[in-house]
Design a protein around this nucleic acid. Sequence first.
DNA 1: CTGAAAGCGCTTACAG
DNA 2: CTGAAAGCGCTTACAG
Lengths: 345, 345
Amino acid sequence: MVSIKDVAKEAGVSATTVSAVVNGLDCVKPSTRERVLEAIDRLGYIPNVSARELVTRKKQNIGLITMTYDRYESRRHSKDGSEDIFYTEYILKIAECLENMGYGLLLENFYYESGSKRLPKFIVQKRVDGVIVVGSLYTKEFIKLLRKYIPAVVALGCPSEFSDYVRNDYTESVTLPIRYLIANGHRRIAYASGDPLTSAYHYKLLGYQMALEEAGIPYREDYVFESKYLATEGYCVARKIMELPEETRPTAVMFASDIIAAGAYQYFYENRIRIPDEISVVGYENLPISCLLCPPLTSVDWHKDRMSEEACNIMLKRLEKSGGEQLGIVIPCNIVERSSVRKIE
Amino acid sequence: MVSIKDVAKEAGVSATTVSAVVNGLDCVKPSTRERVLEAIDRLGYIPNVSARELVTRKKQNIGLITMTYDRYESRRHSKDGSEDIFYTEYILKIAECLENMGYGLLLENFYYESGSKRLPKFIVQKRVDGVIVVGSLYTKEFIKLLRKYIPAVVALGCPSEFSDYVRNDYTESVTLPIRYLIANGHRRIAYASGDPLTSAYHYKLLGYQMALEEAGIPYREDYVFESKYLATEGYCVARKIMELPEETRPTAVMFASDIIAAGAYQYFYENRIRIPDEISVVGYENLPISCLLCPPLTSVDWHKDRMSEEACNIMLKRLEKSGGEQLGIVIPCNIVERSSVRKIE
DNA sequence: CTGAAAGCGCTTACAG
DNA sequence: CTGAAAGCGCTTACAG
């Protein structure tokens, strides 16, 4: 193992000087800098990160916390395709951005029990300089708890009073597709609302209501269906909708996630109900599956790629300057039109 | 920041003793151990990992390398749902296992250029004790290169001469579903082979050929379709198959990945060709999407969960004992029957 | 522009 | 069973 001292000796300078050139300080005379660089190259010197971390107290690592519904049930959910699919779009992009910024990514799946003081291991052990929390399952108290231990936390995908955040406008993200359906002539529009335990639930429901109100369409409770973020629940919602009497049956449904919509597709398929001829459907999140469904599903795109990037940017800013005002950014959504909505004349 | 010295003082012992109890050495008298534990608790002492790493040279972190086709095109592919979906099933499971074993997970997406000496950053910087390489895009030379820098590498999902590995039997994984189709009365069976650049390609093709041979069905080259692991390519394969004259047209197709099959579903849907009535299809990998397709896709399950676990187990063993013989395990595949295959009487 | 020295917080022989 | 001491490989005032 070649150390800074070996390089110093080889270059005929002190460790202090080697350290200065390694860290790019500009107080080094070009000629000696050159000598040091050559010595580094000759010896194949690579700084020991642990030693550096020990003195600087920076880790050059960011933690990513993916939250899960339930510590033991997480796998069950993923079998249904929901969590895995949901997180993966963030994970790889964040890894990529962080790497470009010179940071590593530590991953931890975490189950938060309300009131518990338990924390992700990499935080307790101070292995990370900051942490990104992704998803919408976390609570205010959890974020608060986190911030007691680590100042740099950014919430990704959800509003967060107590930390920096990157999110979209949940309300608008539902108003948009409902308006779109209305513009396509639909007036009886059902809404599969997602999981009420999720912090986005109310914002999204509000978006549904607002869009209807704008258009002078009365809100009907029997058009709103609660459902977890599972395909199987979408299947049930579809059945309930089709069981409504034909004259009041919705002509379109908006699902609070593509994964729920996928379950509805199953029901429609089994019962030979053609989309969009007999019923129009709009999804949400623009998951990778949305373009694989038949017919391809029109969906609301969150721009998770961009959200991931912005989360990394904000993290970087926060790392440079802790304290100061809350940083946050709202990424606008938009509709990706595919083939699941019919225009009613 | 409370250090080991503070604890030592508080407990009236030396740092050596504190270190011993923290590390669970059994050379400490129970009564002093008790005193130390109390002091730790009172002070809220948490060992500094950097300091420990500096002296032990262990990081308690494992690196996960996800390989990508092309450094700049990775995102393009993921838009088609392939890479993201493929890796995510491993990632979260590995994170979970590693955590239970007391290790953290560092993630890096990596593009290997043949002949290049570039390595993932966390390896160069020695931030990890070992590394798991996932996917089937890596090459022998890459693994060899890796092992020069780090002894503990396990290849996950692919045969690997130069490292420990966890994989399935590629050949059998295709023989199995082809036999299944034959048992269901099919004799004209097409095969969408996946990407020839992939190291699994030949093994899988062999499996196809073997199953046919067993059944005395002649191998026909025009029933084999090369395709990248992309939905769009599956779409084309489906078209080509349906363009064959009806009397020699395959009654079933096996796709080398569910993602390719999903593209074929699109074509069949658009052309109102019912699965499995007019054509039977079998997928591969049992991706989360397979049960969301209409009709649900019969697929070959790799047991990625179990593979992930075994990869972590092997890593642990290797960390305990470097050198010695190669460790490897082959996980058997099985078919998950859903509704995409018709029985021909 | 450069270097000697102290110190970050641990672990590890070694002596007792 | 316990402790004093050295050392892991850096960075950081500070002095010159």
